[in-house]
Design a protein around this nucleic acid. Structure first.
Ligand SMILES: [Zn+2]
Ligand SMILES: [Zn+2]
Ligand SMILES: [Zn+2]
Ligand SMILES: [Zn+2]
Lengths: 139, 139
DNA sequence: CTACTGATTGAGACACAGTATCATGACAAC
DNA sequence: GTTGTCATGATACTGTGTCTCAATCAGTAG
C-alpha cells in the first residue's frame, strides 16, 4: 500500500497518450515520484528553478487529465494536488494538519448508485471527501 | 419544497448571531431572496452597484458561517454560491448546464458513519457531490 | 546524421477570486 | 442626541492560474 507515484508509470501513461517526454516534464515527474499526501503547485515551482510556472501548471493539468493526479479545493488554503493510487477513489482530509489520504469503498459505490430515487436527473459521477482527524493529529 | 431563501430567515439568523443589519447587508439579502441554484460572487457585485466588492465577499462569508449559504468549487468556472435549504445536505451539479441542487439522504449519512473501518483517524465530517445530467438537460 | 514539423517551453502580461488596509460612516444602546 | 463599536467602500494587494508568442525541442522520416 505505497502512496508513492512511480516515475515509470507516469512516463508510460504520458507516452501512451501521445505526449512528448521533454526535459521539463521529466524533471517534474522525478519530483512527484517522491511526493506524498497533498502538495501545492507553488511547492513544485519553488523546487524546480529552471522550469517555468506555466509549464508546471500545464504539466499538472496534463497529469490530472491522464488520471495520475487529483486536485482538491478547500475553503482555506490553496488547492492541493495529490497522487492517484487508484482509478476511482475518494479522499480523506485531516482538518487539523491538512494531510490528504485516499481510499476506496465498494459499499459507498453501491449506495451512491442506488441513491438515484431522490435525484432529479441521471447521475454520471460523484465526489466524496471525508474530513478526519488523522492518527498523528489525535495522539 | 421551495428552493428559495426567505429574507426574514436571514435577518433573524444574522441578528441572532449579533451582527448589525446595515443597508448593504439588507440589499444583499433582498437579492439573495430571489436566487435559485448556484450563483457567483461577481453576479452579486454586478447586480448591486452601490455595494463594495469587499462588502459582498464579507457578507457571503458571513452567511456561509451562519449556515445559510454554501460555496462550491469546481475545476472549471468560478466558485458557485448556493442557498442552504437544509442544515446538513449534499449537492447535485449538472455537468451540462451547471445547475446546482440540494438533497438529503439518511442512508448516505448512515453509511458514511459506518465507513470508518477503512479510515485512519476519526471522521469529523464529509462532503458529497453528485454529478448529474439534470432533467432539463436530458430532454 | 540531417532536416522537417508540430508539440512544448519560458518569460511576462494578463485574468480572476478574494483579502488587507484604513479613514469614514452607520448601527444600536443608552 | 451621544457614544462606542461594528461595518463600509475605495483601493492596493495577494495568490492561483491562464494567455500569448517567439524560440526551442522531440520525435520521425529520409
Ligand atoms: Zn492530521
Ligand atoms: Zn466513488
Ligand atoms: Zn442541466
Ligand atoms: Zn451527509
Amino acid at each position: 500500500m505505497t502512496t508513492k507515484l512511480r516515475r515509470e508509470d507516469i512516463l508510460a501513461a504520458v507516452e501512451d497518450a501521445g505526449h512528448r517526454l521533454t526535459g521539463s516534464r521529466r524533471a517534474i515527474f522525478e519530483l512527484l515520484e517522491g511526493m506524498e499526501g497533498g502538495f501545492s503547485a507553488e511547492e513544485i515551482n519553488l523546487a524546480l528553478g529552471g522550469v517555468g510556472r506555466a509549464t508546471v501548471y500545464r504539466t499538472l493539468r496534463l497529469l490530472i487529465k491522464e488520471g495520475l493526479l487529483c486536485k482538491l479545493f478547500s475553503d482555506e488554503g490553496s488547492p492541493k494536488y495529490t497522487v492517484a493510487k487508484f482509478g476511482h477513489h475518494h479522499h480523506t482530509i485531516c482538518v487539523s494538519c491538512g494531510k490528504v489520504g485516499e481510499f476506496r469503498d465498494s459499499s459507498v459505490e453501491r449506495l451512491l448508485k442506488a441513491v438515484s430515487a431522490d435525484i432529479e436527473g441521471t447521475i454520471v459521477g460523484h465526489n466524496l471527501e471525508l474530513y478526519v482527524n488523522c492518527s498523528e493529529c489525535i495522539s
